[in-house]
Design a protein around this nucleic acid. Structure first.
Lengths: 257, 257
DNA sequence: TAGTGGTCTAGACCACAGC
DNA sequence: CTGTGGTCTAGACCACTAG
C-alpha cells in the first residue's frame, strides 16, 4: 500500500525526522524553497507535503516565520465506533434485535434529548442487541419526529433504530460521550447482570444541519464491549480503523499491524 | 473563522449537498471538469476541494468512473484524550500526583506490555492522580527501559510518568482501548470505592518508530471521568476538541457550539 | 480505448507577520 | 519592508479502469 508520489515521500521523510526525535518540538523545518531545491520539484509539491503535516497537527505553520514542529500532544485520536450487528457476526455469533418498548413521548420528559432541541414529540424505542441468543447491549433511542416523520411509520420490531436511521436519514454531525456506569435496576435486568456489574455507556447525539435528529444511549456489560482508537502522525490517510469487540480467545494474537 | 479560499467554498458547497441529503449515498457528484466550469477555476482548485472530501471519507473517488457519495458510516470520530492535570485544574480543583510504587520488572511478567515487544527490563510505576485531595484516577505505567533509559534516573515521586514522558520522549504512534470494568481489590482500595463501583479503564500503548515505549492503564471511577468525541463531516480542519470531565454542576449548560 | 482522477510544473499574486 | 506560506492558473503526462 505504498504510494510513490513524491509529495507523499516528502511528507513521510519529514514525519520521520519528527517521530525519531531528530527534529524536536519547536524546531524549524526547512523552508519550502529549501525543500524545492532538496527534492528538485515545484513549490506546489512541497507545499502539499508540508500542508499534510500541518493538517495532522505535527507541525505549525506561520507566515514569514516558517514551519515548526508542534509540541507533543496526546490530544486526539481516531475513534472507531462499531456497527454492532456487523461486529457480532464477525465474531461468528448470531445477531438479533429484540424490541422491548415503543412509545411516543413529550420532548420535555427526556433531559438527554435537550441538546437536540426537539420541538414536539419524540419516538422512544428501547430494545436489546442479542449475540448468540444472549443480551449483548441495551439501546435506548429517541427520535425527533418533527425532523424524521417517517420514523413514525416504522415499528422497529425487526430492525434496530440505529440500523434503520443509518439507512434512511442523512446526518451531518454527531457527538459522543463514553463513560462507565453501574446499570439501573431496569437495565441490569434487561442485560441479565447485577447492579454491581460495570457497564460501558455510549451516548450519541446526531444532527442534520443544526436540526436534532436522534439520541441514543447504548449500555454494554463491561466484558462485551470495548472501543479502540489510534493516533498515528506521519501517515496522512491511515484508513478508518475497525472497532474491536473482545472475544474470549483473542488474548494472544492481536499484534499491531 | 471563515476562509474565503475558493477551494474551501467548493468543499463546503459539496459537503452541504451531501449532508442535506440532496446527494444521497451512491450519487455521482459532478466531474472535476464540470466543477471547473461551474466555479470558473482551474482543475487543481477543484481537485483540492474534492480531495478534501475524500480524505474525510465523505466521498469515494474512482478513476474513469467518477466521484461518489460514500455510504453513511458512523465509523470514526475525533476522540479527545484529556490531560488529566489540566482538566482537573480547569475544574478549579487542586491537582496532585501521589506515587504508590516504583519497581523494575521483567518484561515477561507483564502481559499488557507484550504488544510493545520489550527486550529487557521494564520500569513499573503506580500512582494516583488526586483532585481536591481525593483519588481521581489510578495510573499503572510500564516504561521500556531499553528504549527510554533516562527514565531510570527519574523516581516519579513528584511528577506523573505520563507528564514526564510527554515532555521527554518523542513518539510516533499510539493505540488506545477504552472499556468499563469492576476494579480489583487493590484498585478499589486505592480509589476508595467498592468493587461493585463501575470504572472506566483507558489503556494506551505508545511506540516510536516501531519501538515500544510505554504502556499505561488508567482507571477512573465512573462518575469522575468521561470521554467525548465528535464527527463533523464537511469541515476539513475542525481543530482538536478538548475533552470534558463532567463536573457536578454542568448539567444545564454545555450546548453544542 | 477513452475518460477520469492523480500528480506535477513554472510561474503568479496576495495576506500576513517578523524584522 | 521583506520573506514566508496560502492560493491559484493553464497547462501537462500518467495510471488506472470502466465499458
Amino acid at each position: 500500500m505504498i504510494s510513490w508520489a513524491l509529495h507523499r515521500r516528502i511528507t513521510a521523510d519529514l514525519a520521520g525526522e519528527i517521530a525519531s526525535g531528530a527534529w524536536p518540538p519547536g524546531h524549524r523545518i526547512p523552508f519550502e524553497h529549501e525543500l524545492m531545491a532538496r527534492y528538485g520539484c515545484a513549490r506546489a509539491t512541497v507545499n502539499k507535503a508540508v500542508h499534510a503535516l500541518a493538517v495532522q497537527g505535527l507541525v505549525e505553520r506561520r507566515r514569514k516565520a516558517g514551519t515548526f514542529v508542534a509540541p507533543p500532544h496526546v490530544a486526539s485520536a481516531v475513534l472507531s465506533i462499531p456497527d454492532i450487528k456487523a461486529e457480532i457476526e464477525a465474531r461468528g455469533q448470531a445477531y438479533a434485535w429484540r424490541r422491548i418498548s415503543w412509545r411516543i413521548r413529550r420532548a420535555q420528559s427526556e433531559p438527554d434529548a435537550a441538546e437536540l432541541k426537539p420541538a414536539g414529540a419524540l419516538l422512544a424505542i428501547k430494545g436489546l442487541h442479542m449475540a448468540a441468543g444472549r443480551p449483548f447491549g441495551l439501546e435506548e433511542r429517541l427520535v425527533n419526529l418533527a425532523e424524521v416523520p417517517v420514523a413514525g411509520d416504522e415499528d422497529f420490531a425487526r430492525v434496530s433504530p440505529g440500523a434503520w436511521l443509518l439507512a434512511h436519514v442523512a446526518w451531518s454531525e454527531a457527538r459522543h460521550e463514553i463513560a462507565a456506569a453501574n446499570p439501573d435496576v431496569e437495565t441490569a435486568e434487561a442485560l441479565g447482570v447485577t447492579r454491581g456489574h460495570a457497564c460501558l455507556v455510549l451516548k450519541r447525539w446526531t444532527w442534520r444541519q443544526d436540526a436534532g435528529i436522534t439520541f441514543a444511549r447504548l449500555t454494554f456489560p463491561a466484558e462485551a464491549f470495548e472501543l479502540t482508537a489510534r493516533f498515528a502522525p506521519g501517515f496522512a490517510d491511515h484508513g478508518p480503523v475497525r472497532a474491536r469487540i473482545p472475544s474470549r480467545s483473542d488474548e494472544s494474537k492481536e499484534g499491531r499491524p
